[in-house]
C-alpha cells in the first residue's frame, strides 16, 4: 500500500542522512556496537538508510569481558538476523599481552581499558570511520562533540581545534592514519531514544526492564551482587530488589535503579518523571569533574 506523506521525524531523517554520508565519504566504516539501546537504535537507523540494501559495514564490539550475559546473547542474535559481520575484540587480550593493567580496589573497572583495544582494532582493520551511539545530552564534554569528529593517529580528540559544522554539510576529509568518530544520534535525548524504540517496536535486552536481582548499596547507588566481577566489601550487605538498568555499560561501572517498569511505556513514564540523569548511575563519570573529557582525549568515545 502506498502511504501519503513521509512523516517528518527530524531526528530520524538527520540520522539517516548522516549514515549515508558516512558510506559515501569513507572506505572502511564500522559501527561500534555495545549491545546497549543506543547502538541498537543505530542499527535500526542504518537498516532504514540503506534499504533495500543490507547494512554496508560490519559491527565491532569491544568486549570488556565484564558485560551482562543478556547483552552478549542479544548481540549475537541481532548480528545473525541482520546478516552483518560482527567483529569482537577482547580487553582481556590486551591485559594478557601486558598492554594495559587491570585496575584494583573497590572502584576497579575495565571501562577505561577499552581504549587500547579499540585503537588496536581500528589499526588492525584500517577503519577510517567509527560510528557510535554517543549523544550530546549525556554529559558536558559530549555536548561539544561534533557529528564528524576527527581523531589523530593516536585516536586523540583535540577539543579546542574541532572543525566547524555548518548547516548539514559534513566534512569527512582526513589524512591517512586519521579516523573519524561519527555520531548520528548526537541530537537525540534519552527520551527521544526510548520513544523511538517504542514507536519502531525495537527489541532490546531484558536488563533494561524491571527484574529481581541481588544487589547491594554503595555511595547511594545500587550495585549488582549477582556478578563476581563487581567488587564488594564484607560489610556491604546483599538484598533482593526489583531493579532495571538505565545504561548498559561494563558491569563494574553500571549501577541499577529501583524500578517496576516492565514495558517500554513504563520506562518512558519513569524517565519523564526522573530527577536523576542517565549517567548519574555511571560511576566512571564521577571520578572527577573532567572524567569524560580526559577519557575522550585519550581516544575513548
Amino acid at each position: 500500500m502506498i502511504k501519503s506523506t513521509v512523516n517528518i521525524n527530524a531526528l530520524e531523517n538527520e540520522a539517516i542522512y548522516i549514515f549515508r554520508e558516512v558510506v559515501a565519504q569513507f572506505e572502511r566504516p564500522v559501527l561500534l556496537f555495545s549491545g546497549g539501546k543506543d547502538s541498537i537504535t543505530l542499527v535500526k537507523l542504518a537498516q532504514k538508510a540503506f534499504y533495500p540494501g543490507k547494512i554496508p559495514f560490519p559491527l565491532l564490539h569491544i568486549d570488556t569481558g565484564h558485560n551482562f550475559p543478556e547483552t552478549i546473547a542479544f548481540r549475537d542474535e541481532l548480528a545473525k538476523d541482520l546478516g552483518v559481520e560482527l567483529i569482537v575484540r577482547n580487553v582481556q587480550d590486551a591485559i594478557d599481552q601486558g598492554k594495559v593493567k587491570e585496575e584494583s580496589g573497590r572502584y576497579a573497572s575495565r571501562n577505561g581499558l577499552q581504549i587500547t583495544t579499540l585503537l588496536d582494532a581500528i589499526e588492525e582493520f584500517k577503519f577510517d570511520a567509527c560510528i557510535g551511539g554517543a549523544r550530546r545530552d549525556e554529559e558536558k564534554a559530549r555536548a561539544k562533540e561534533r557529528i564528524f569528529s576527527v581523531r589523530d593517529s593516536f585516536g586523540q580528540w583535540d577539543e579546542k581545534n574541532q572543525r566547524p559544522e555548518l548547516f548539514d554539510m559534513l566534512n569527512g576529509k582526513i589524512d591517512l592514519g586519521q579516523n573519524v568518530r561519527v555520531f548520528p544520534i548526537s541530537n537525540w535525548t534519552e527520551l527521544d531514544v526510548w520513544t523511538y524504540i517504542e514507536s519502531e517496536k525495537i527489541e532490546i535486552p531484558s536488563i533494561y526492564f524491571s527484574h529481581k536481582r541481588n544487589v547491594f548499596q554503595r555511595d547511594g547507588l545500587i550495585w549488582s551482587a549477582d556478578d563476581s566481577i563487581v567488587y564488594r566489601d564484607e560489610e556491604e550487605t546483599v538484598e533482593e530488589l526489583m531493579v532495571r538498568f538505565r545504561t548498559v555499560g561494563d558491569m563494574s561501572c553500571t549501577a541499577a535503579v529501583l524500578s517496576n517498569a516492565t514495558e517500554i511505556g513504563d520506562v518512558i513514564e519513569e524517565i519523564r518523571s526522573s530527577t536523576i540523569s542517565e549517567r548519574g548511575a555511571r560511576i566512571d563519570d564521577k571520578r572527577s569533574e573532567a572524567a569524560m573529557e580526559k577519557r575522550k582525549q585519550q581516544g575513548y568515545f
Binding site: 502511504k3 501519503s4 506523506t5 513521509v6 517528518i8 530520524e12 538527520e14 532504514k48 534499504y51
Partner: peptide
C-alpha cells in the same frame, strides 16, 4: 516511487531522507 525504509509514499516532504 518514493521509499522511506520499506514503505512506499506518494509525497516526500522537505527535510525527509528518502530513496
Amino acid at each position: 516511487k518514493i521509499y522511506f525504509h520499506d514503505q512506499e509514499y506518494q509525497t516526500a516532504a522537505r527535510r525527509s531522507s528518502v530513496t
